[in-house]
Each structure stands twice: as structure tokens, then as C-alpha cells.
Amino acid sequence: MSVVIHQLKMTGVRKTYSTGVVKVEALRGIDLEVDQGEYLAIMGPSGSGKSTLMHIIGCLDVPTEGTYELDGTDVSRMSEKELAEIRNRKIGFVFQQFNLLASLSALRNVELPLVYAGVPAHDRRERAEAALEKVGLAKRMQHRPGELSGGQQQRVSVARALVTDPAVLLADEPTGALDSHSTGEILELFEDLNDTGRTIVVITHEPDVGARARRLVHIHDGLLREPVPVAASGATR
């Protein structure tokens, strides 16, 4: 209990965009710590800064001010190239629109992060197959995204997010494009993954999705508000 490993630690993160003469403060001082094995939902309406926060958590963007440590590495001042490498190793993305490449099979899509990691072809295939098995798509590996249902496609992208064994699985509105049945399936998958120790951060504006997480924070006008106590974590299950 002496040393708490924060998988993710933000201190005083601000993000300011200047569009011409107008300065927009998307994040106005975010302090956030996520421990290993947590399942966190970040909820907020559109315009609250939750997309910006997601970009910074996902190392797609860097804060204007403040520091962000991911898995013990300060990534807040990294170059584009270094960020790409960090994303590759530490972040598993799940997007609302799945973002699978239509011309590639499910297997090839899942292999993609390993391609950029420079993993040899044989290992890559084995790991991608294992990831697809984990999300229950062992029989659909050679299907292209167009031949799969929305729920299946999202499971492919979850497999793609898991295949590098990342520090954080970062899901941006993962159920936004899914029907209620598929939504249930994906959320169950997240819970199963979390049960095996996977750190998950979900960004959403849907209260139902947010309620399924074990910890919930709200973002509003670029600031986080954590409803205390987080006793709800078990009760909602």
C-alpha cells in the first residue's frame, strides 16, 4: 500500500486552442489519477472538453500546460514520433466508428498495431488470432469489416486494441454506433476484460454506459467533477 502505481496521472492539465483571435480553453486544469485495473468512465455533454481529454489521454495530442504521466512516463512534451510509439505500445483505442480498414480482413486489421511495432509476421498472426478468440470472433477472422455486423466490427476493434497488451484500453463512445443488444455485448466484454485486470477508460455521454463503469467522473466546461463517494462502483452491477 506504500507505492500506488498510477497507470495514468494528470496534473493541472490545460488545453487551449486558438482559432484565429478567439482562444478556447477546452481543458482548464485537470487532475486525474487512474490506477492499474481500474474501469473508469468519463462522462460529459458535447462541448464539455471530453474529446480533448480523450485525445490527451490517448497521446493523440499534448497538453498546453500541466503534466501527463502514462505508465510512469511523462508524455506531455513528447514529439510526434515519440507519441506515435507510445500510442502503439501503451494505448489500445476503441472508436465510435470502429475505424477498421475496409480492404483488410479482421485478422489483418487486428495485426495492424503489431505491424507498426515491428513484430515478425508469424508472432503477429498468433497474437492477432488470440485477441480475436478473446473477443469471440475466432470464426470470423478472414471476414472483411463489411461482412460483419456493427457489434462484431466493434469487437474486432476491441481485439485490435488488446493485441499490443496496452497499459490502457481507451474507448471513445464505443457504443455510440451500436444497437442496444450489441451495446450490452460490448459492455460485458469490457467488464470481462476489467475482471482480468485490464485498465479501461471509457469516454461517453450515455449515462447507461457510464453507470456500468466501476468509477465515474464527470467533465464539465473543461473541469472534472468526481461524484463522491464512488461507492456506486459495485452497486450498479
Binding site: K81, A84, E85, N88, L101, P113, R160
Partner: peptide, 14 residues
């Protein structure tokens, strides 16, 4: 597609 590849770890050089 380029955005996705970058998100998944493709560096600008790649």
C-alpha cells in the same frame, strides 16, 4: 485511414 494508422502507432516517417 492515415489518422487511424497514426493512432495505432504509425510515426510520421512510416
Amino acid at each position: 485511414e492515415i489518422g487511424l494508422r497514426k493512432a495505432l502507432g504509425a510515426t510520421p516517417g512510416v
